[in-house]
Amino acid sequence: MLLSKLREALICVQAGRVTLPYPYAPHDPPPGFRGKLALDADRCIGCGGCAAVCPSGVILIRDDKPMVRTLHFALARCTYCGRCSDVCPEGALSHTLQFETATNTIDDLVMTIDVFMGPCQRCGRCFPPPTAMDQLPIRGFRMDSECCRVGADMPAPDAAATWAAAHSAPPGGVRTLTP
């Protein structure tokens, strides 16, 4: 009995203080950590692979304007699985080491980009470059309709503003509307 208590005390004493000084000192996660998503808008080709694989429906794609595809990221839903960055053929999506994402403003967790898509010479509709299509082994990659989403609870972007922005964008270029 006593021996047992002594052993238990010894374990505690040997361990010493183990509490980390976080948040007074930074605590860096290891490399490879899947933190807050970062999007390099210049690389995105609008193929939609990310939206097709996202388990929690973070990414919504809309083709409601000619020649422009809108990608909407509702990061508050993100579960940090990293499937989007896995399948992105252009490396436009990556996970940062940032894990302190708590915020009072939901807009901090929203990203929207408009991607200019080369229109088809025959029908005039958008299409992603065929090379990127070839890189995507995923079928049914488009997720155009809002009703496909689990709980469509996102604000609708101002259609007029995005329309104007799209038409002022240089052909082949990408324009970021909100961070």
Partner: peptide, 18 residues
């Protein structure tokens, strides 16, 4: 706790490994 840190290094997250 070190096991959790280890799985974080291997998988990218300490619990939901994905």
């Amino acid at each position: 706790e070190p096991v959790m840190w280890l799985t974080e290094e291997i998988s990218g997250n300490r619990k939901t490994y994905g």
